[in-house]
Structure formats: structure tokens, C-alpha cells
Design a protein around this nucleic acid. Sequence first.
DNA 1: CACGTTGATGACTACGTATGCACAGAGTGC
DNA 2: GCACTCTGTGCATACGTAGTCATCAACGTG
Lengths: 358, 358
Amino acid sequence: MPPKPVNAVRSLSAAALASVTGHDVARAAGVSQSTVSRAFRNDARLSQTKRAHVLEVAKALGYTPSHLGRSLVTRLTRTVGMAVTDLENPFYPHVVAPLHDALAGLGYRMVLFMERLEGGENDQLALDRLLDRSTDGIVLTTTLLGSAIPRELARRGLPFVFLVRVSDDVGGDCAVVDNALGASLMAAEILRHGHRRVGAIFGPAETSTGRDRERGLRAGLGVADVELPDELVCRGPYGVETGSSGMERLMKLPMPPTAIFCGNDTIAIGALNAARRRDIEVPGEVSLVGFDDLPMAGWDVFQLTTVHQPMEEMARTAAQLLVDRVEGRSEPGQVRRAVFEPLVVIRSTLGPPPKGRL
Amino acid sequence: MPPKPVNAVRSLSAAALASVTGHDVARAAGVSQSTVSRAFRNDARLSQTKRAHVLEVAKALGYTPSHLGRSLVTRLTRTVGMAVTDLENPFYPHVVAPLHDALAGLGYRMVLFMERLEGGENDQLALDRLLDRSTDGIVLTTTLLGSAIPRELARRGLPFVFLVRVSDDVGGDCAVVDNALGASLMAAEILRHGHRRVGAIFGPAETSTGRDRERGLRAGLGVADVELPDELVCRGPYGVETGSSGMERLMKLPMPPTAIFCGNDTIAIGALNAARRRDIEVPGEVSLVGFDDLPMAGWDVFQLTTVHQPMEEMARTAAQLLVDRVEGRSEPGQVRRAVFEPLVVIRSTLGPPPKGRL
DNA sequence: CACGTTGATGACTACGTATGCACAGAGTGC
DNA sequence: GCACTCTGTGCATACGTAGTCATCAACGTG
């Protein structure tokens, strides 16, 4: 009786990659695998002649050491994860890029974790990917205030650092700008121009930036006894749409504000778009300010007055803080907070209030 | 005699992560590691009761299967690399994000490889990172025409796909828009408005998009015997600065063009900025068109007439093509090219030439 | 000349997981 | 009661690398 035909729908052989390993190089060079490993790691105990020979053979065979094998045994991946929710927001590329470069400078590679939603079962899946040891540490940039993620990371002992935003129920190293201070400085600037009827389009209240910038603005205006009545306040996610619809609503009011503080530059740009659409002059009829100082804010079509935060420096610092944790150079119990100075950048969307509306 | 004190400056224990492994779970649940593995992979041969028990114990211990261990033995990382040079260019976030989502939908994660320069020793380092088996395949988006990278990937048998740009000396699956066609359609639109003196600010000649869009524009204008004299042509990288300086140069000419074709939207926006700076009316004094149709192009402050390319669909297709390769569903020798239809989007930066300058 | 000493190298194992194989026990048909 | 099939589980091994220990040759040195 002939053998039963093996009908298994074998998981299609993944292109049958003839991956060349250290053993192959060893065989071809007439040495042991250990020697190949040592040659690539420039181990001092290996003679230079043999090292040169091994490297030559390796090059001829097209050998590249496997990251998986190496990481498994060293228990170090030399990889850092970065959690971002919304890369299409013009803000994040400007934090991802410098962070990538900073990490590269420290010998680490960067992996992007983009998660759309937070909460629910989805959350567990996302968390698993953070915790599966493919990464030595995590940079958190889009954490919501009540997020379970930092808590879970702390519980599992995976190093992390907050960048831009923080979550205050779980302590952790962070690199942020002083958002409240920045907003209050901008409030002073608004007051200095003579505004007394001020509106705002804030970002989400469940983010530390949204909350702190609101707090700073209110405090700063309070100095001159200027209030921020509810009817002059809008709120929404950090996107152009929020600014656009907020602007529409505020300017339709019987007594619209003479200046509007926007939660970030993206919102401000959305507001500027609405202004253009409705033929509202800025700053002629209404002044508009942002926060972040995106490169875009300086473009001639915008010339947005805004609050600068030193993104490159913050990213560099976050990278350093995280790597220090990963490599065990930080005190385990001690939290290191890097708070940067905001800087008001004067351009041309903030002017005096229109005559007769003061 | 007391033992000699071990003074070794031991490589600072990386936070001494008590990583819990499948063996730990097995011990705690009173089963073997194999059973733990089977529980997590939902192996049919495992009884549901035991599976439930194992998962419960695993959850209590906070166990997450190691990506390294798994990938090493399965020889599949379920990870795809994406090579990008310049994330701060407003274009790329809009390709990274949909690609990430498409890959996630297919069960793959995405890793970003950002390399600043191409060429030189730097190149070898970057290449090594692509080839170290940390990835099942690569999406190439910023390939230069003569690049060694696709050649090397092909030689090593690592699957890859071109997205947006291609390199023609090495064949490979790709998802691109028909750039030449798009540019020629735009040329027809420019002609239809009555322009005869047309200028251009092209992207880099060493990119397929730069080359093909130029070719398409010239061909499209040629239909009406309109030439593109050298003095009306600028070239530069795909950034706002190129558009800005190009615009300055062209509009200072004794006989400036009445319409300018820009290599992409970013260049066009740079040109619009220069126009704003110099108080040049668009399209009153000069018409301006772009290519890509970034979300930004539709903003009220720009209202840029441009050529749309279906980025989400292209990204989805690229993801599918690559995964087909990785999982061995594609014919090894056969190249699959997905070429998408461009679409001219009429907004308000293209109008008739100014009277008396025709 | 016996004995450390040094320097260079290989054999071997661990890392955490998946999986082929063996095997135990329960059920089934005759 | 026996041969047989199933079902569930554990054992052992492999994946590619780093690093520990042993080995071995060459080389002074007293």
C-alpha cells in the first residue's frame, strides 16, 4: 500500500530565504561560529589577521548578523518604541523625526507604534505589542490623562519616558514644556495689546497639554481680572477641524471675542482657514494665537503668533532619559522631570482689538 | 582566605527585568511549556479547559509571549520595514499612516527606517539594518533612481515593494500613480485656460516622480507646441524652500511665466508663500499648480489646484503586494505593477493669464 | 626541563518559543 | 478482551547568536 499522500496545505514556504548564518560563514572560513561572532563584535582577543579573513568571507557570502538571535541572548534589543496615535496630525512628524535622530545617535533604533483608539479590547492588543520584549523601552507622546498604559509599563518594569504630554497618576521621567507658563505668557501678551474680551478653542481636556494650557491662560488673564466665559470657550481634538468649527461658532456670536487663544497651532490654522473662508480679517477683526510653533506657523500665509516649545531639544532629552533608564544609569526610584521654557513668538496674527469693539 | 572580591564593573544590569517566560507560566499552571505555547496559539489539539486555565495563570503572572523567541523559531517576524528619508516633509505622514493601518489589517506591524543620507559608508550601515532579519519585507518610498538598496534587497532575497517612487534598473512590485499622465492632464488644463508662457519648479531629477512628471508636462504642453524654455525651469528637493526660491527667481524675470507647474504640493505651497510675501496675486498675476493633493492643498488659505493621487489605496495595495510576496503567494519571477489613475483637482490657484501678458 | 603564562580558538550552552514525535489514556468496534 | 483510533500532553530539539569554559600551542623563566 502506497503511503498516504501528505495533503497538508503547508504554510507557504516564505520565499525559502536561504538566510546565511554565522555557522555558514564559520564553515566557509574554516573557523568556529564563536570566532565569527567575535570578529563582528571586534573582540580584542581575536587576532587581526583572522578577523580580517572572517570579515572578508562574511562579506563574500553576504552575511549580516541576525538581530533576533543577538537580542535573544543579550536580552537587549537596542530598539525603542514610540507610541503615537495620530501621525497625520502635522505636529507629530516634528517630534518623531528628532527623536529618531537622537536615538540613532545613542545607538538605538526606533519603532513606531501607532494605535488608533485607546480603551477596550483593542487596548490589550496594543499593550501586548509593547510588552512582547521587542523593545527596550517606550517613549509615550500621546498619552491621555487616565491611560492604563504607563501604569502597566511600570508594573511590568519596562522603562518609559513621557514626551510632550504626561499622565499624572503615574510618575515617570518626562520631557515637556511648561505649558501653563507658556499659556500665561501668551495671556499677558494678549492683554498687553488691549484685549478684554478673549475667547479660546482648547484641545482635549483629557490631555495634560489641554488641561495645563487652559489653566495657564485662565491664570494669566485673571491677573487683569479678565474672565473666560463659557460661551467664548470651545473644545475639541487637536485638529484643523476643531479650529475651523470653533472659529465659525465664536464669530457668529452677537458679541464675538476680539482675540482667540487656540490650544495648538493646528487648531489655530483651522481657525485661520475659517477666517479666510468667511472673509474675516486677522488680526483686523479678530486676533488669533496658537501654541507649539510648528515650522508651518512661520509660513508667510500664516505668520502665526504662537508659543514656541523646543522640540528638538525635548526629543533629545527624552531619548537620553530613556536610554539612561534602559542602561540602568538612573536611580530606580527617582523620577527625572525635564521642564523646558516656553517662548512667545510674535508674528502677525495678534494685534490690537478692532476699534469700537473694545 | 576570603574570596577575592569580584570587582568587575558588571555591565549595569538593565533594570533587572524579571521577564516572565512561558516556562514560568508552565510551572505555575502545572503544565509544560509546550502547552503554554499551544494555549496562546489556540492550537486545536489543546482541551478548552486546560487552555482557559493556562491563559488565566498567564494573565495573573503578566505574561506576554516574546516576539524574539517566536520570530527566531518561526523565521517570520510579522514585521515590515518602511524606508523613509524625510518624515518632516508634509507628504510622508500621509503615506506612512495608511500603510501602517493596511499592514495592521493584514496582521503585520510596521517599523520605520529613517535614513538621512544615501551613499557612502552610511549606506552600508543602513543596509545592514534592513538585512538583519528583523523584518520580513521592506516598503521603499524614497528610493532614488540609481539606488543600490533595491538591488541589494533583491540579491539577498528580501521581499520589497516600491510605493510612490520606483527605481527602474531593478524590477520590483510597485504601487504608483501614473505621474506622466497626471502631469500631462494638468498641462492640458493649463493650456485650456489660455496659458502659453509656462514655467516649472520641478522636484529632483534623480527621482522617478521628478523625472516622469517633467516628461508628462513637456509632452502635454507639446501638444499645443508650447515649449518649456530653460530659463523658466527651476529644480530642487521636494520642500517649501524650493518653491519659495523658485518663485522668487521666476517672477523677477523680465517676462515672467503666466503659469507655473510645481513638482509637488509642498513646492507649490512654498511658491504660494513667496507670492504672499511679494504681494503677487494668485491666480491674478500668475497661476500655480501642484501635484499630490495633500489634505493641506484643500485648506481655504491655499485652495491649490493640483493632481490627486489615491494615497490610501496605493498604500493598501503596496501592503497587499508585499505581504503576498512575503507569504509566497506571488510568482517569484513575475513583477506586479499597480499603476493608479491621477485625477486633476480644480480649485482656485489656476485661472486665465493676466490680460496684456499673453 | 618542568612549570606557569599568555594568547588564540573551539566546544558547548542559554536565550524563549514552536513543533515533530512519543506516549498515555479513553473510547470504539468486533 | 484485543486491536485500533483519537485526543491531549510532555519531551526534546532547533532557531542564530553571545559568552563561559576548556584546550592547546607557543613561550619564557627559574
